[in-house]
């Protein structure tokens, strides 16, 4: 870990970073995959920026609310997909530490990014991407570029995209703005080191989750717990009887960012849900996938995750 100092007041400038729960930051600092010169500890702001409130149509969560505290709140238990995404993430210990804002900003698990002995365009711009043509079994089949195919690993952000959730961002000058979670993460393109729309000093202060809709989050992985998604899908359906009036679908574990599957939503709209339409929507969600020989199975897995999530959401609606 490179040298740095920790401070409580002020706002990060270039080379510095916020630290909240620390579960991603400390991990990556130890690996040497990130090396901020100064950490701004948000611990003192914990009380001000945590807690859950609700109106008739929205649940607002302070960004420093821990994943554990959020998961056990009655309002969140009512949002099935959110609750599932939270309790299936990481481990009970990590959920006690990690904050929701920090979780949205979780970094990739790409092994080349994490192993500082390997080149990585995200870590060292221009050094190359050995994942492309390398061991890419868990890399993105959607949203990649010629510079980077690192998968966004989180669960909660995927559900946020499916819900149409928004975040409040406070800039270093104290001004606030709201953006959809869908606009938070950036595809790698030619600049994989720029991962989000946040500017230096920006702080996510709150997350706003719309209520309503039949919803489900399906996380597929190779062990029952304490593992990242091999493929996941979040679905929110609005139904009129048995017919879908609107649908929002997002994919996790398959793309470089939490992935909105708009094409799949169109497939569902106006249709009755059965296994055939569920799989048709899954097919549509993955139609733009660019798999390789070694990760092609995850396209099929993504289709199945979407199908399962649609069928489960329908089940959750009654």
């Amino acid at each position: 870990m490179s040298a740095f100092d920790i401070t409580e007041g002020g706002t990060p400038v270039d080379g510095a970073a916020w630290i909240a729960g620390g579960t991603t930051m400390v991990d990556l600092m130890k690996l040497g995959a990130t090396a901020p010169s100064r950490l701004f500890d948000l611990g003192a702001q914990r009380d001000a920026l945590s807690g859950i409130s609700e109106t008739s149509d929205t649940i607002t969560l302070g960004a420093l609310t821990t994943m554990a505290d959020a998961a056990k709140h009655p309002a969140i238990r009512g949002l099935t997909a959110v609750h599932t995404a939270l309790v299936q993430a990481a481990s009970p210990q990590i959920r006690e530490m990690a904050t929701l804002g920090g979780n949205l900003l979780q970094r990739t698990r790409c092994s080349y990014f994490r192993d500082t002995r390997q080149p990585c365009n995200k870590r060292v711009p221009g050094s190359g991407c050995p994942a492309i043509g390398g061991e890419d079994g868990h890399h993105a089949v959607l949203g990649g570029s010629a510079q980077c195919i690192a998968t966004y690993p989180g669960d909660f952000a995927v559900v946020c995209v499916a819900l149409g959730a928004e975040i409040t961002i406070r800039a270093s000058d104290g001004s606030e703005r709201k953006i959809p979670v869908q606009d938070l993460h950036r595809r790698p393109g030619a600049t994989p080191h720029t991962e989000t729309a946040l500017q230096t000093g920006d702080l996510i202060t709150a997350i706003h989750l719309p209520k309503g809709g039949a919803q489900s989050y399906i996380k597929i992985r190779d062990r029952a717990s304490y593992a990242f998604a091999t493929a996941s899908a979040a679905v929110v359906l609005h139904m009129d009887g048995a017919m879908v009036t609107s649908a929002r679908i997002a994919l996790g574990g398959l793309a470089t960012v939490p992935w909105r599957a708009a094409t799949a939503e169109h497939v569902l709209k106006g249709s009755m849900i059965d296994q055939k339409t569920a799989f048709a929507a899954g097919e549509a969600a993955l139609q733009d996938a660019h798999p390789t020989l070694t990760n092609a199975h995850r396209v099929e897995l993504g289709i199945r995750a979407v199908a399962k999530a649609i069928l489960s959401a329908r089940g959750n609606s009654v």
Partner: peptide, 20 residues
């Protein structure tokens, strides 16, 4: 190509958890 173990971490080289 490079010859290294890519998932050389205990959280990535999966072993059974209590839930399994």
């Amino acid at each position: 190509k490079r010859g290294h173990w890519t998932n050389a971490e205990i959280g990535e080289a999966l072993v059974p958890t209590q839930a399994d």
